[in-house]
Protein backbone atom coordinates (compact mmCIF):
# COMPACT_ATOMS: atom_id res chain seq x y z
CA UNK A 1 0.00 0.00 0.00
CA UNK A 2 2.70 2.42 1.07
CA UNK A 3 4.91 1.31 -1.80
CA UNK A 4 2.21 1.82 -4.41
CA UNK A 5 1.36 5.25 -2.99
CA UNK A 6 5.07 6.11 -3.14
CA UNK A 7 5.29 4.84 -6.72
CA UNK A 8 2.28 6.98 -7.65
CA UNK A 9 3.96 10.13 -6.29
CA UNK A 10 7.24 9.29 -8.02
CA UNK A 11 5.57 8.76 -11.39
CA UNK A 12 3.49 11.92 -10.96
CA UNK A 13 6.71 13.82 -10.19
CA UNK A 14 8.32 12.43 -13.32
CA UNK A 15 5.32 13.60 -15.38
CA UNK A 16 5.74 17.14 -14.01
CA UNK A 17 9.46 17.05 -14.80
CA UNK A 18 8.66 15.91 -18.32
CA UNK A 19 6.16 18.74 -18.73
CA UNK A 20 8.68 21.26 -17.37
CA UNK A 21 11.39 20.05 -19.75
CA UNK A 22 8.97 20.15 -22.67
CA UNK A 23 8.12 23.73 -21.73
CA UNK A 24 11.78 24.67 -21.48
CA UNK A 25 12.38 23.35 -24.97
CA UNK A 26 9.22 24.53 -26.67
CA UNK A 27 8.12 27.79 -25.02
CA UNK A 28 8.78 30.93 -27.06
CA UNK A 29 10.78 33.26 -24.75
CA UNK A 30 12.85 33.44 -21.58
CA UNK A 31 9.96 34.40 -19.27
CA UNK A 32 7.67 31.57 -20.31
CA UNK A 33 10.58 29.10 -20.12
CA UNK A 34 11.30 30.26 -16.57
CA UNK A 35 7.66 29.66 -15.80
CA UNK A 36 7.99 26.06 -17.04
CA UNK A 37 11.20 25.44 -15.11
CA UNK A 38 10.48 27.06 -11.76
CA UNK A 39 6.86 25.92 -11.45
CA UNK A 40 6.67 22.48 -13.02
CA UNK A 41 10.06 21.23 -11.86
CA UNK A 42 9.60 22.43 -8.29
CA UNK A 43 6.26 20.66 -8.09
CA UNK A 44 7.79 17.58 -9.74
CA UNK A 45 10.59 17.47 -7.19
CA UNK A 46 8.09 18.02 -4.39
CA UNK A 47 6.08 14.99 -5.52
CA UNK A 48 9.25 12.92 -5.87
CA UNK A 49 10.42 13.93 -2.39
CA UNK A 50 6.98 12.99 -1.03
CA UNK A 51 7.28 9.60 -2.74
CA UNK A 52 10.76 9.03 -1.35
CA UNK A 53 9.75 10.20 2.15
CA UNK A 54 7.18 7.40 2.25
CA UNK A 55 10.05 4.95 1.70
CA UNK A 56 12.51 6.65 4.07
CA UNK A 57 14.10 4.47 6.72
CA UNK A 58 13.82 6.98 9.54
CA UNK A 59 12.09 10.21 10.41
CA UNK A 60 15.45 12.00 10.16
CA UNK A 61 15.98 10.79 6.60
CA UNK A 62 12.47 11.94 5.67
CA UNK A 63 13.18 15.32 7.26
CA UNK A 64 16.39 15.68 5.23
CA UNK A 65 14.50 14.96 2.02
CA UNK A 66 11.89 17.59 2.89
CA UNK A 67 14.67 20.04 3.71
CA UNK A 68 16.30 19.46 0.32
CA UNK A 69 13.02 20.37 -1.36
CA UNK A 70 12.62 23.55 0.70
CA UNK A 71 16.20 24.61 -0.12
CA UNK A 72 15.61 23.98 -3.80
CA UNK A 73 12.40 26.04 -3.67
CA UNK A 74 14.32 29.02 -2.28
CA UNK A 75 17.23 28.62 -4.71
CA UNK A 76 15.07 28.15 -7.77
CA UNK A 77 12.76 31.04 -6.91
CA UNK A 78 15.80 33.31 -6.53
CA UNK A 79 17.45 32.05 -9.71
CA UNK A 80 14.21 32.58 -11.63
CA UNK A 81 13.93 36.11 -10.26
CA UNK A 82 17.57 36.86 -11.19
CA UNK A 83 17.26 35.57 -14.75
CA UNK A 84 13.97 37.40 -15.29
CA UNK A 85 15.25 40.73 -13.95
CA UNK A 86 18.43 40.35 -16.06
CA UNK A 87 16.29 39.74 -19.14
CA UNK A 88 14.13 42.76 -18.31
CA UNK A 89 17.25 44.87 -17.83
CA UNK A 90 18.40 43.83 -21.28
CA UNK A 91 15.07 45.06 -22.63
CA UNK A 92 13.79 41.70 -23.74
CA UNK A 93 10.06 42.14 -24.23
CA UNK A 94 7.70 39.42 -23.03
CA UNK A 95 6.26 37.27 -25.79
CA UNK A 96 2.81 38.15 -27.08
CA UNK A 97 0.60 36.07 -29.21
Amino acid sequence: MLISLSAFFLVAGAVFFLAGTLGLLRFPDVYTRLHALTKADNLGLGLMVLGLMLQAESLAAAGKLLFIWLLLLAASATAGQLVASWAQGKGIAPWRR
Binding site: A74, A75, A77, S85
Partner: peptide, 15 residues
Protein backbone atom coordinates in the same frame (compact mmCIF):
# COMPACT_ATOMS: atom_id res chain seq x y z
CA UNK B 1 22.12 44.77 -5.76
CA UNK B 2 19.47 42.17 -6.27
CA UNK B 3 17.23 42.11 -3.17
CA UNK B 4 16.21 38.51 -3.87
CA UNK B 5 19.83 37.35 -4.06
CA UNK B 6 20.73 39.25 -0.90
CA UNK B 7 17.82 37.63 0.94
CA UNK B 8 18.79 34.18 -0.29
CA UNK B 9 22.42 34.57 0.72
CA UNK B 10 21.40 35.77 4.19
CA UNK B 11 19.39 32.57 4.46
CA UNK B 12 21.96 30.24 2.91
CA UNK B 13 25.31 31.49 4.23
CA UNK B 14 24.80 30.36 7.86
CA UNK B 15 23.37 27.09 6.58
Amino acid sequence: QEPALAALSRLLAPL
